[in-house]
Amino acid sequence: MTAVILIVAAFLVLLPFVYESRNLFILLTQIFVFSIFAMSYDLLLGFTGIVSFGHAMFFGIGAYSIGIFMKRFEPTLGYFLLAVLMTIALTAIVSFVVGLLTLRLKSHFYAMLTLSLSGLFLVLAEKWRSMTYGNDGFTFRVPEQFIDRTHFYWLCLFLMVAVFLLLKRFTNSPLGRVMQAIRENEQRTESLGYHVLHYKITASVVSGVLAGIAGVLYAVSLRFVNTSVFTMDITLDALLMTIIGGVGTLVGAIIGAGIIEFAHDWLTALAKEHAIFERWIIFFGIIYILVVMFFPKGIVGTLSSLSWKKKKQHAVKKEEKMAG
């Protein structure tokens, strides 16, 4: 498994040297950005068992922070870092407050509050015209370090791998283990003496901050930001990527991001052939419902449980032979 990942990573790093296609690189950059976003979502849904329907708000906070900083001030690396700090602070505060309010209650409350709060952010972005230029959004210049598409491609790839390793380490740490215990059985974890609320809020904050960073990268890659970053569609993207790829695996989120973005690209191209493909999201909706119903572990989870079964059968046979 590790070997496969390394080969894929090396391939992606070297790709710009051998292949030149602007569209493909933009698409791949998009995939890396959404992978970070989907992994942050996976930390909540897959590892802690918290359902959020307003993940777009963290994404949007990041996108707007960078946009506003670059537009109002000079597009330099210094202001870029300031904007990133701003994103981290804002997303941390928002996710902390939301977590504090709702995570001690039933799981529905977090989903509901995030859903309505992201609706509020959408309205805010539409109405606060002096700051956000309303519905139409605005373009902005990015620091010169990010102008080169290939460099930015490497940066996003690097960050995706970094976030992956970080989250891998994080979920395997004692803290992450407690989170997984909460997912499996919250009451039991509590009766073992863990303060469940603290762990859930931690998960919420880490996930919110990472989603904000994904938002920053997204806005920089487009050099444009508008209210669409706060819409339900962004949250749905994260949901689809995580669920279809496989919850609680991290790799699943990356694979899911790849599948959804490629399929999106492909179906948008098909839309010229037939109008039904403009409503491409309907196919994903149906696939999503079927996956939740029949393959709740997603692609990665289903595949790995299959291979695990095979291994187990293999081992049993071996034992039988030994005994025989």
């Binding site: 068992g49 359902v51 949901l239 409503r279 994903f284 999503y288 419902i289 939740v292």
Partner: peptide, 21 residues
């Protein structure tokens, strides 16, 4: 619970896209 919440949101998506179709 988690599956329920997820699946009803998926249905919401399909229902509103069907309207547009």
């Amino acid at each position: 619970h988690v599956q329920q919440i997820l699946i009803t949101l998926g249905l919401m998506l399909v229902l509103s896209e069907m309207l547009k179709v």
